[in-house]
Simulated scan of single mutants.
Amino acid sequence: MAANDMPEIKIDPDNMFREESFTDLKVGSIRRLVPVTAEGDDDPARETRFEGQASLMTPAGSLPLSFELDADSLSGAIDKFPDAVNAAAERAIEELKEMQRQQSQQIQVPGQGDFGGGGQGGGRIQF
């Protein structure tokens, strides 16, 4: 792809936030996103946002979780963190189960896997 074929990538000056991070160094972190103008001044016309982050340990390794915290203050975000992280973990687990379910339902075509026939015809279709 030539350089002139690249789409123009621009930061939206009307949607800028200052990011502040808070952590307990154990369970997770909370990001406070303070709306600012393109000059970097606080923008009181827009709402401050809070986002939580944590990791769920699975047999396959660490699964990062990121979720919105509906709060008006850091203390409110801290209070809502446990329920929000649990809901995010449940959604992630359900998504993983659904991906496994979909993968297990794929039709196996002879010649694309081991059907026990020694690579010869007569394979079975598996659901």
Rank of each mutant, 00 (worst) to 15 (best):
D5N: 07
K80A: 07
T48A: 01
V27Y: 04
G113T: 04
L25K: 09
F67K: 02
S73F: 10
F17E: 02
V109D: 04
F22Y: 05
P110F: 06
F81A: 01
R31C: 08
Q53F: 14
S21F: 14
Q120N: 10
P44T: 09
M57I: 15
E94S: 14
T23L: 04
I9P: 02
E95F: 10
K97M: 13
S75C: 13
Q108C: 13
Q102M: 10
D70R: 05
L65I: 09
E19L: 05
P35V: 00
Q112T: 07
A92R: 00
Q53Y: 14
D114I: 13
D12R: 08
D12M: 07
M1W: 11
T37K: 08
K10D: 10
R46K: 06
G113E: 10
L74V: 03
R91G: 08
M57T: 15
M57R: 15
I11V: 14
D79G: 07
A2L: 10
A3R: 11
A3N: 14
F22N: 03
Q100V: 15
E90R: 03
L56K: 01
G61N: 13
E19D: 05
G52D: 01
M99C: 14
G123Q: 02
R124F: 13
E8G: 12
F127Q: 14
G40C: 00
D5M: 05
E39S: 11
N4F: 11
Q53R: 15
S55V: 15
D12C: 05
A2I: 08
Q105P: 02
L63A: 10
D42L: 12
F17H: 03
Q120R: 09
G76S: 02
V85K: 02
S104T: 10
V34R: 07
M57S: 15
A84G: 10
A45K: 13
E98D: 14
E68M: 13
E51N: 12
G122Q: 12
A88C: 04
P82M: 02
P64R: 05
L56Q: 04
I93G: 05
R18I: 01
E20R: 09
G123F: 02
D12E: 08
G113Y: 07
G117W: 15
D5V: 04
N4P: 09
D114C: 10
V109F: 07
G121E: 15
E47N: 12
I30G: 02
T37Q: 06
E8I: 12
G116L: 05
P64I: 06
I125P: 05
I107G: 08
G28T: 00
I107C: 05
S66M: 15
G28S: 01
R46D: 06
L74N: 03
A45E: 12
F17L: 05
G113S: 03
Q100M: 15
A71V: 01
L25C: 06
L69W: 04
A88W: 00
Q120T: 11
I9N: 03
E90F: 03
R46Q: 07
M6L: 08
G28I: 00
D70V: 06
V36N: 01
D79L: 05
E39K: 08
K26M: 13
G61T: 08
A92I: 00
K26F: 11
L56V: 04
S21K: 15
D114E: 14
